[in-house]
């Protein structure tokens, strides 16, 4: 067992495209929940829209890389509208149930065998990122240093993913420091009060849903660039991981979700590597390698419970800024 490999793998997660994608999705969720108070439990659906919107546009309609991104974003806005119209007037806990249901509906639809020609059914899609790698500005070679050493392709997807995270961070910072941000934070606190001051609360919630959803969609695209699109990835569990990440860093912060994603993935990789190592070495005998996956989920569940009870504002949040008063 090579422990340096285990730690190296864990450290590599700090800059991995998956970490970037989850951070992006969590920033979107922070816009929804942390700033506006919307209980969106369907962030996985926005990611699925990014993944499928992008892949199907390229594979079935022959669109270019940027066109495919544009199509995904349009789909994302449409989805937010469809989701928001019936639910944003309802009590907040209904929003939670409807968003989770909508996400599941979407997952069933993309995995159904009846749409196999379009979405690949349960086998999903691959080979849609050719153009993305073709526009790679980095010449062939190895880059960076251990444990972050990558090929030019890996570097390109990381640079691309993290650039989007940076842009999203700036965007959300600007929005939240503007009068618009003030209104949505007011809605989080008490929507009737905001309404009584002449603000169209419904429209603001919709805008917030669209903005956070669009970030989720971009996250979905970043997520699939280095891998195949697979319907099984967009289960409710994905949404719960994004929630864990957002709460870990701090829901009402912009940088929290980024750090939250890094901590989440580093810890996950460490747990897996260390457990695998210990099982292989025979130190742990009560688990088989098959059972390491479940153990990780158990740890995530415990972490989520502890976090939300003992440190609801997250690691970086201001205790006073975020109260769960929904």
């Amino acid at each position: 067992m090579d422990w340096s490999l285990v730690f190296g793998n864990a450290a590599a997660e700090l800059i991995s495209p998956t970490t970037a994608a989850y951070a992006l999705a969590a920033i979107g969720l922070a816009v929804h929940f942390g700033y506006t108070g919307l209980l969106n439990f369907g962030q996985a659906a926005f990611m699925a829209i990014g993944a499928y919107g992008f892949a199907v546009s390229v594979l079935n309609f022959g669109l270019s890389f940027w066109q495919a991104i544009a199509v995904s974003m349009i789909l994302s806005v449409l989805f937010a509208l469809i989701l928001g119209i019936p639910t944003l007037r309802l009590r907040s806990d209904y929003l939670a149930i409807v968003t989770i249901a909508a996400a599941e509906i979407l997952r069933y639809v993309v995995s159904t065998t009846s749409l196999k020609d379009l979405t690949g059914g349960s086998s999903g899609l691959s080979g849609f990122a050719t153009e993305f790698y073709a526009i790679n500005p980095f010449p062939t070679g190895n880059y960076l240093f251990w444990p972050f050493d990558v090929t030019e392709k890996e570097l390109w997807v990381r640079v691309f993913g993290w650039s989007i995270v940076a842009l999203a961070t700036i965007l959300v910072l600007l929005m939240m420091r503007s009068p618009w941000g003030r209104v949505v934070k007011g809605i989080r606190e008490d929507e009737d009060a905001v309404r009584s001051l002449g603000k169209n609360v419904y429209a603001y919630k919709m805008q917030s849903l669209i903005l956070g959803g669009a970030l989720g969609t971009l996250a979905g695209i970043v997520f699939v660039l280095p891998r195949a699109v697979q319907p099984g990835n967009y289960v409710t569990g994905l949404t719960f991981f994004i929630w864990t990440i957002m709460l870990l860093g701090g829901a009402a912060t912009v940088f929290g979700p980024i750090v939250g994603s890094m901590i989440f993935w580093v810890l996950l990789s460490l747990t897996e590597g260390v457990l695998q190592g210990l099982v292989n070495m025979g130190v742990i005998t009560f688990l088989s390698t098959d059972q390491i996956g479940p153990v990780r989920f158990i740890l995530i569940g415990l972490g989520l419970m502890a976090l939300v009870v003992f440190r609801p504002q997250g690691i970086f949040g201001n205790k006073k800024e975020l109260q769960f008063n929904v």
């Binding site: 007011g186 606190e189 008490d190 009060a193």
Partner: peptide, 9 residues
């Protein structure tokens, strides 16, 4: 009547 100050602003 029941005040609605926006506590976290």
């Amino acid at each position: 009547q029941l005040t609605k100050s926006l506590s976290m602003l």
